[in-house]
């Protein structure tokens, strides 16, 4: 059976029919063409697929699309404004917090969630917020630097 659902993604409403077992990350990527949210471990471990569900970070690989019916979802595609990157995205570029880029959408979304809850986190709070996201390139330092820059500006 398919289930009719409505997803509010970055403010835009999408009505679609999904299979009950389809995960949100698959619907975002395969149905809505929003491939910014990356899919990697599919076990909730790596954090690459992190999105915001009603403002809270969650793993979209473990969230069924039908469970997100009617909810507000924010993805990396919603960060830029009028074609311009957000301050956080600019900071990631400026500090070299991006190498291969696979983990980057997850780090950006977890950083957005952190800064919305706590606009002035100290370095330890930033490190703590990132502890569930894996990056195999940067060694994390530059990611923390970028978020710290935004927190201080």
């Amino acid at each position: 059976m398919s289930v009719d659902i409505s997803l509010r993604v970055n403010g835009a409403e999408h009505r679609l029919a999904v299979e009950p077992t389809e995960t949100l990350v698959n619907v975002l990527r395969n149905r809505l063409g929003m491939t910014g949210t990356h899919k990697d471990c599919t076990m909730g471990i790596c954090g690459a697929c992190t999105i915001l569900l009603n403002g809270q970070p969650v793993s979209s690989c473990l969230l069924l699309a039908c469970q997100a019916d009617g909810e507000a979802i924010r993805t990396i595609e919603g960060l830029e404004r009028d074609g311009a990157l957000s301050l956080l995205q600019e900071a990631f570029l400026r500090y070299g917090a991006v190498q291969c880029g696979f983990c980057t959408p997850g780090f950006l979304m977890i950083a957005v969630a952190l800064l919305e809850k706590n606009p002035k986190p100290d370095r330890n709070e930033i490190i703590d917020a990132l502890k569930g996201n894996l990056c195999r390139c940067t060694g994390y330092t530059k990611i923390v630097d970028a978020i710290e820059f935004v927190a201080n500006n």
């Binding site: 909730g44 954090g47 992190t50 809270q56 969230l63 569930g132």
Partner: peptide, 9 residues
């Protein structure tokens, strides 16, 4: 427990 994005669900 895990991290916040897991604790949220």
């Amino acid at each position: 427990i895990a991290c916040e994005r897991i604790r949220n669900r």
